[in-house]
Design a binder for these strands. Sequence first.
RNA 1: GCCGCCUUAGCUCAGUUGGUUAGAGCGCCGGUUUGUGGAACCGGAGGUCCUUGGUUCGAGACCAAGAGGCGGUACCA
Length: 491
Amino acid sequence: MSKNKKNFRPKARRVKGFEDRSGAVLRSEQQLLGAAASVFDAHGFEPLATPSFEYADALGKFLPDEERPNEGVFALEDDDRQWMALRYDHTAPLARFVAQNYDGLAKPFRRYAMGSVWRNEKPGPGRFREFIQIDADTVGSKNPAADAEMILLAAEVMRAIPAISSNFTININDRRLLDVLLTDIGIAQNEAGDLQKGIVVRAIDKLDRLGERGVELLLGEGRKDESGDFTKGAGLSPADIETVLRFTRTGCDQRTDTLSALQGLLGTSESASSALNELKLIDNLLEKSGINSQQARFEPSIVRGLGYYTGPVFEADITLQTTDDKGRPVRFGSVGGGGRYDGLVARFKGVEVPATGFSFGISRLAAMLAGFASKDEHHNGPVVVLALEPEHMDSYFAMASELRANGIRAEVYMGTSGMKAQMKYADKRNAPAVVIVGEDERKAGTVTVKNLALGSKMSAEITDNARWRAERPAQTTDKRDQLLSMVKAVF
RNA sequence: GCCGCCUUAGCUCAGUUGGUUAGAGCGCCGGUUUGUGGAACCGGAGGUCCUUGGUUCGAGACCAAGAGGCGGUACCA
């Protein structure tokens, strides 16, 4: 036994569904977080950070039970036998925070949050068990202007990201329109009806993936997928299916056209007009804020899968086209969304507190931006000061400091290997240049700067390595006080 | 959760009807060049052929179970 223990080596492996991030991805993340935070700040939203853990009962209806304590969330039992769980979004912690501090908050309470959220689910491509979400919400207002502000924020965050700029569309809908429609075709206002409603909403949510034909099956008897798995449908009649599908087709290029089309379809009942009037208000506020129909459109086919929305919902789509490593076109699609959820805080307070918000995932966006960056930024590492004579480290440190003081990313080689290895190191780090001061330079009071980017370009024509090395191209030697200007010349 | 496909070197993969010592390209390390990365040439390290069990004189290959990965689908507060 002890022998086994002695020889035990843990296998170095990453937990499934989690990822290591570094370099370009991490920098993109920081850039995105910074861009979003400054948009929120500019609009007067306050930052708020809540703990990663919440008591499980605060997170929602899926409470840990004896058999499946980790269903959906990562949960563990505290000393006092209370279940706590990692947050799966920023909205539930917000509801808890508002309920707990309700009397002291200026209402409407507007805050933003950013950070990791965790979901204990099967990971997939682009779907991880830990990812970063950015979230902004307004709690305590049922004014549709608050919804319009959320859409405006979403648009401005997109615009603030240079790689996206205007290549996005925000699709807006209102859950109440669908409610009106479903009530019209006779879906009951009870538990069974809610269940059926849920199936309809999830079916519509799949329009982009399954197409109208697939959604038609899901609205009717059900659908069998390619793997032979059968999904039970909503059981609507063919006529009702057609009505629902017609509703999803009412999206027009101009927001006002869509509103007219919806009016025609839903009629002028009180519930229909009140929802449509709010959308009109939102349209007007977006217009005045400079958000045109191309960047934010009314699109009845987007519904959001989640059950808790009670009013306007929206989804932000990146329309940018890129290609993957195999040259196939990739669409990024939905990166986030939100809407009105008037019931969430009620779980704690007992009274309904209206709220609206939106959130989007940073991780996929960051991966995309990093992909752009790695395509054209090669020699973007630090300038490397070679450490050729260990007893003269002080002068190497002084040179690196001087470069940094002038805004140039610079480091001293910290290893103990020879010059050749140091050059390889600099190459691998994508250093634009190396600074060389060995015995020769030191005695002559000079410094040599080698332009690695230029050298690498010239190396394409290498035929004779001996001559190449003798000529030592792409490097210059000058007096020590010329260091800064020589390095600057590289950029 | 359900269905399908896959698993051989760090990576991408080849490996004949089951047959001796399991290969390639790239990468890595070293040398040609003791102060110069990238080209070229030479050399080297690196393998639990996913695991366990079975069939067989003999298994990387065939069979079964399990694990992991990928894809689809469902769920997603």
